[in-house]
Simulated scan of single mutants.
Amino acid sequence: MRKLGRYVLEDRLGAGSFATVWKAYDPELDTDVAVKVLADNWAANADVRERFLAEARLLRRISSPRVVRVHDVGVQDDRPFFVMDYIRGGTLAERIGHCEPAEALRLAAEAGYAIQVLHGTGIVHRDIKPSNLLLDAGRTPPAVLVADLGSAKQLADASGLTVTTGTPAYMAPEQALQAGGFDGRADVYALGVVTFELLTGHKPFGPGGRAAHSAERAPASSAPALPKGLAVPEGVDALLRAALSVRPEDRPQSARAFADALLSRGGGEWAPPGPSRRARLAVWLAAVAVFLVSAALTWLTR
């Protein structure tokens, strides 16, 4: 049995270059928690250590049910760690390939509203991807929370790190090119990739994302279309193409605008489209014809 402070580590939930996240048990409060601990090889790096602790402070400062909350920090064997809510339900990564279109659109919209909370506090996440979007199965319907602010713009600036951060498949062109001056529309691009993946089961540009050397020359309309057989409301394909535009000014201008547009096109309450107007008219005329024939036969047999 391994412990960090009073917390009993149980299962490893995930690991990255800088830290590992564990499911743990807090015996004093008799509850499950998530514990993020800095990797051994980075514990002595002052910049990375400050970035790690700044993430904890930032998460603690943001008070929203759409962002994972930090409850405690500590140090053991010279390795800092912090303690967060344990969100039951896994991540959106586990929903890839298992979503009906309506559910995919609802989850993507939920993610958009969670990301907007960050943007409202002046934070650009910079690493939006399915594994950083948690699904809270304890709410009805399940809600999406945003987690892992280790790459957030404020944190990188505070630590003095200048390397490009993020995951290539979800990285906006201006972020990949280190052009500087990018804003929340970079997260909107990543959210577009996540939405495409939830709907189709694969990433629009593959695991490498848009190649940085070709992104500058790619036209704004170069995003792939959704599969023709996919039953989604009218306008969703155009919305995703806009979100995946090379130029930030061609995308929805906020995560909230993207989420609102998804829902206005039917996410959540949307059901597969019914018959067309012409088809409904044909059905109505057929019903009238049957009624008239039936009435005529009844009159003739009197």
Rank of each mutant, 00 (worst) to 15 (best):
S63I: 11
Y7A: 06
A39P: 13
L29H: 10
E100H: 08
W270R: 11
L198Q: 01
A255T: 05
V288L: 15
R57H: 13
D260K: 02
G181R: 00
K203P: 06
G180K: 01
L9I: 10
P224W: 04
L145W: 00
V8F: 08
M1C: 14
E55Q: 08
L292V: 15
V290S: 12
L161G: 03
A93M: 10
L149D: 02
E50Y: 04
R66A: 11
A44I: 01
P207H: 06
A147V: 01
G112C: 11
D30H: 13
Q116A: 15
L226F: 07
L9G: 06
F205R: 05
L198F: 03
G235A: 04
S151E: 00
H125S: 10
E197I: 07
F18D: 05
L262R: 02
V163P: 06
G209E: 01
A190S: 13
W42E: 12
R69N: 11
Y86K: 04
Y113K: 10
K228H: 12
A259V: 11
T121A: 15
A111P: 08
V246A: 14
A225V: 08
T121F: 14
Q178G: 13
S159N: 07
A212S: 14
I87V: 15
D148N: 05
R278I: 15
I123L: 12
V33F: 04
A156S: 09
L59S: 02
G16P: 14
T162D: 06
E103Y: 03
G206R: 05
A104F: 02
A108D: 07
T164H: 03
G14W: 01
A255K: 02
D30S: 13
D183T: 05
G89I: 10
G192A: 04
E10Q: 10
V288I: 15
